[in-house]
Design a protein around this nucleic acid. Sequence first.
DNA 1: ATAACATATGAACACTTGCTCATATGTTCA
DNA 2: TGAACATATGAGCAAGTGTTCATATGTTAT
Lengths: 147, 147
Amino acid sequence: MFTHDDVCDLVQIDLARVRTIRAALVAPEAVTGLADTFRALGDPTRVRILDALSHGELCVCDLAAVLRLSQSAVSHQLRLLRGLRLVRARRDGRVVFYSLDDQHIMALFRQTLQHVEELREPFDSRASAGADARSLRAGRTLRTGRK
Amino acid sequence: MFTHDDVCDLVQIDLARVRTIRAALVAPEAVTGLADTFRALGDPTRVRILDALSHGELCVCDLAAVLRLSQSAVSHQLRLLRGLRLVRARRDGRVVFYSLDDQHIMALFRQTLQHVEELREPFDSRASAGADARSLRAGRTLRTGRK
DNA sequence: ATAACATATGAACACTTGCTCATATGTTCA
DNA sequence: TGAACATATGAGCAAGTGTTCATATGTTAT
């Protein structure tokens, strides 16, 4: 248990840097905002929803058909995405059309895809990191797999 | 329950588009990769770890001190981040230094922070062009400030 | 009005996740 | 060798998440 006020109980390697970096960290609200937004993107269903919407607006029903999901599941996820202003709703009669609310999102997708593709490259670019690669099968499940 | 093979049971608004968009969706491995990576960024602790490491490499102990987290918690999270190649480990004696493995990550942070700041704006910015112009205002770095 | 349709939402559930605690692994030094 | 230190990891648990099912809300047409 670590309830220190100024300094860690452990022996620090570089105490000065600890203080300096701690003072330079991003504000807590920014951390929360970043984490919330990334978490919204961190689910396959929501990624697929946003991907589908990147082709233009879609009503809930068509979106469910495109992704082969239940209307309820889609609606729940859209609510979440709407709350984060990632998608926007437009009502037309009894149909509600959804579209991307922030074009930056697609740029994020593109950039992150680049990173993901680097993941699949051979491992010997770095010697010390090679041993660690064993813990996670590269390529397949990126999750913390069972063994 | 929706177990359809080609078409949704529900009445589709635009069946042609459903087919077209379904054919244009990103590949399942890409979806998985994107979601896994974003999920890794979708936790406040990991955001803070990456933020701290953006100032340069740190050993586990100092990282724990900077963020006031237990060594174990930090180590567990670093393992996850390492598996996704977001951070890299370098051993020096009994100390292990971690650093960012992909500089793209900080660009993602910066872009997403822009989105987050738009979230806090008033709701009447329905005009699409206007909202985009204002978002560029905060062209600063991540290190906006203190608490 | 009522029926039919499109969407939203609450509850319940299985599953995941991030932490702590205890302990194991690996490294240096006496 | 053994003690001290730095890090890694497994187990267990409380909290969170995504889905389904049932139902509510809102809109259009009859």
